[in-house]
């Protein structure tokens, strides 16, 4: 599968198609080997590294990977090809990553809540354990935001807690929106149901705006437009930190009053959310390659150009080094059984 797109190269041929060179100057930087990372990259220099995106092109995972890839390419001095391999809600690509050569030429971006959660829950289709993989580094954290209809009766999280019957909307079991909203409902004993079957988060949002469901959970950054537009009311950040653009009145999970039992479950889930969207490699990856990739990624993620580009795209980066991710994974493996039992009902 090394036929995938070295897209820096394709970009050049695109430009050759006839745009003024100046137009795209910002993204036509050179990709000649310039190994400046401190790691030992001898084995990867000049190679083609494929990063598999387990979803269709155009989604968040795809965009993040394509955003970071050129900068990583520069650090390693290799060609990076981004390849989409959708299937089984992202599990297919991760299952096949397990069997790939562990020489560092095949990586993937993982969906922490979706894929990691299925693994912890022991769900069908997830043939891997979280600690199987080699962790390179996290591209972005993936906090969720609970929102309600701006025209509805629930305008704060306390309103939801006091509800007689609260209806969440979601795409279906195992999806992030389903897991997070069911988990919050279970932990805080919110009466109501999760309506499943929406074809995508767009349709779920539409139902929230129309008021036919009371609320939903969704990717924090993707909610920004609707929140600023005033059609959706943010009520709770399911993540460690609240972003600048969100009003301080919106609490994070950690700021809620909880019993010890509740806190234990929420902490475990926050750890899963903290796992976010990491680049991972096959189990037991070659040590030199691992250290090369980790160092290169750490350097790439600090590149001011990348930081600026990510800000322009409103795609927040949240780098976390590979060894810290491993610690996080270990915490998750040691999570209280109550958590994995709860998750098992949601996948």
């Amino acid at each position: 599968m090394n036929t995938a797109m070295p897209y820096r190269r394709s970009l050049r041929s695109l430009i050759a198609l006839g745009v003024g060179a100046g137009v795209l100057s910002g993204c036509s930087s050179d990709s000649e080997p310039a190994a400046s990372g401190g790691g030992d990259c001898a084995s990867l220099e000049g190679e083609t590294i494929t990063i598999v995106v387990p979803y269709e092109p155009g989604g968040g995972y795809d965009s993040y990977t394509r955003l970071v890839a050129p900068y990583l390419e520069e650090e390693i001095g290799a060609t990076i090809a981004v390849q989409n391999q959708p299937g089984a809600g992202g599990l297919l690509a991760l299952n096949s990553l397990r069997a790939e050569d562990a020489d560092g030429t095949k990586l993937a971006i993982m969906n922490g809540v979706g894929a990691g959660g299925s693994s912890i829950a022991g769900a069908e289709g997830a043939d891997f354990a979280l600690d199987d993989f080699t962790y390179i580094g996290r591209v972005a954290s993936d906090p969720s935001l609970l929102v309600t209809s701006a025209a509805g009766e629930y305008q704060t999280f306390d309103d939801i807690l006091a509800a007689d019957e609260f209806r969440w909307g979601s795409t279906g079991p195992g999806a992030e929106d389903y897991v997070t909203s069911s988990l919050i409902s279970a932990v805080f004993d919110i009466p109501g149901e999760v309506v499943t079957g929406f074809p995508g988060s767009g349709e779920t949002e539409l139902a929230v705006v129309q008021g036919s469901i009371d609320g939903m959970s969704g990717n924090l950054t993707s909610r920004r437009g609707a929140v600023e537009d005033g059609t959706q009311t943010p009520v709770l950040v399911v993540g460690e930190e609240s972003p600048d653009w969100l009003s301080d009145d919106v609490p994070t999970v950690a700021e809620l009053d909880t019993t010890e039992e509740q806190a234990e479950l929420l902490d475990a889930h926050l750890a899963l959310i903290e796992l976010g969207r990491p680049f991972i490699g096959p189990p037991g990856m070659d040590e030199a390659a691992t250290s090369c990739l980790r160092t290169a990624m750490a350097a790439a993620m600090e590149n001011p150009e990348l930081v600026q580009e990510s800000e322009e795209q409103e795609r927040e980066l949240a780098f976390l080094p590979g060894d810290e991710l491993e610690g996080l994974v270990q915490d998750l493996m040691d999570a209280p059984p109550a958590y994995s039992e709860l998750l098992a009902t949601l996948y």
Partner: peptide
Amino acid sequence: FELALGIPVPPGLFLD
């Protein structure tokens, strides 16, 4: 496919 578009094509069994 390989140079301009850079889109994956069937690679065969031996070229993986």
